[in-house]
Design a protein around this nucleic acid. Structure first.
Lengths: 110, 110
DNA sequence: TAGCTATATAGCCATATGGATATATTGTGG
DNA sequence: CCACAATATATCCATATGGCTATATAGCTA
């Protein structure tokens, strides 16, 4: 799972790739469509797509001449699950845990 | 905000750094304490800490001889906020949005 | 089959990253 | 002030990353 997170976070660290995911949130798209908003070469986009796919964030389809991409939510869910463990540090709705933690931390910290 | 996400995701892409955050979730810790679980040199850990700090994920304190680190939840909250936009793709509790989206996507996809 | 369209792959290059060792810096205690 | 402890900074090195151009591959369509 750690390896997965490595790949996922690493894929998400690039703004072009996040923008691509944003586009795919509206539905599947061809490589050309995904490339359109950017001033990057087509191979550069293909490379980004490969990174996203290897991280499990998207999938490739096949449709006539083109290979449309779709979002693969599971990978994002993995991230959400990871970050959920930290939610208590900022979210009011985790008050009881928060109280508990501030006691524990207060003990350790002072 | 995009720049922030770049730095944050990039920082989170390394398992050592995620482990450090995990340790800091139990309360503040010195560099030596943070380095202890790893078979890495002290400078390597300092480098990781610098990356985490520049991403805003941790802060440095000062206490006698040592510079203890603490978690900085805001940066993680930023990630949670980003990913929340995708929550509808996997979470049942977002059913209405999900329905809406599947209609929209169905339209675009078929 | 020939040619066009869509996309992938191969190289190549510059910069970034993660690690190591050696050394500098800063604070504490004697 | 000295010596030690804790941590940071400076190099250096190997590998990874992101971009480009050129070229290969696959599927239509005439």
């Amino acid at each position: 799972m750690d390896d997965k997170l490595d790949a996922i976070f690493s894929a998400l660290a690039d703004p072009t790739r996040r923008a691509i995911l944003g586009r795919l949130a509206n539905g599947k798209a061809t490589v050309a469509e995904l490339a359109d908003p950017f001033e990057l070469s087509q191979p550069a986009i293909s490379k980004h797509l490969k990174v996203l796919e290897q991280a499990g964030l998207i999938r490739s389809g096949r449709e006539a001449n083109s290979r449309p991409r779709v979002l693969e939510p599971a990978a994002l869910k993995t991230v959400a699950a990871w970050i959920a463990d930290y939610r208590r540090f900022w979210d009011q709705s985790f008050d009881r845990l928060d109280d508990y933690l501030s006691k524990v931390q207060g003990y350790e910290n002072d």
